[in-house]
Amino acid sequence: MNAVLPFTRRAVLHAVRDVETLIESVLLPVVLMLMFVYVFGGALAGRSEAYLDFVVPAVVLVCAGFGAATTAVSVARDMNEGMMDRFRTMDVPRWAPMLGHVLSSVLRNLVATAVVIAVAMLLGYRPGAGPLDWLGLLAAVTMWVLAITSVFAAIGVAARSVEAASGYGFALLFLPYASSAFVPIETMPTWLQGFARHQPMTPVVDTMRAFLGGESPGSSAGVMTVWCAAITLLGLAGAGWAFARRQPRI
């Protein structure tokens, strides 16, 4: 475990110094929120301010996706540009560099989430969350970021180039739009409603929306927890499998 702290520090330095990562993790969700509120908000909710209440949890969800996607690129860079070769000749656990990227992603996403909520409040958003609700939101965001980052880490391990890692991950970023994140599921075509209702992002965003509104998330929190645990395990198993396949270790 001694190796995790230096690797996390390294990944945080990457995130802070890489302008593209900063833009993708922090600026892009804010721009997305402004666009949804002021371009689509009137059409979707009658007026922009009304849509702000609905869309903030969705932007937090998407924000986690953008932030986690950069993990695939960071891991792929380590795998394909030589650093992993050096680490493999050292007494360093093979998962430690990747865990550093994952923990850095969690920190980066929590900061990005705070920025999104702060900007939303400047626009007039007034969350009804109490102290326990904020803690619940923190737990929900952390669980979701861990889950989706694990998947992107696996993509980063498997990708044969940095560009490929970026491309594979992009597909996942469309999933929030087919959930309860941006519009009520009831407004979707019937054939899409089943998918939207049962895909993992719906309980995640419902839970976040409930916490931000100061309400009980009900069964969504439990469903979200199961989904996040399953996705995290799947992502880590996938990363381990891809790692063993690409770099068998003695």
């Binding site: 001694n2 190796a3 702290l5 230096p6 520090r9 390294r10 330095l13 990457h14 110094r17 890489d18 030589g82 650093m83 070769d85 050096r86 680490f87 000749t89 050292m90 007494d91 360093v92």
Partner: peptide
């Protein structure tokens, strides 16, 4: 691995970090 040190044919340095940070990282890992 605890007893060896290896430098590969291709340069393996972290371009985003400074030279000092690269060495400090390696020192801590060692």
């Amino acid at each position: 691995r605890r007893r060896i040190s290896a430098t590969g044919q291709n340069v393996s340095v972290d371009a985003t970090l400074t030279g000092a940070e690269n060495l400090e990282l390696m020192g801590e890992l060692r």
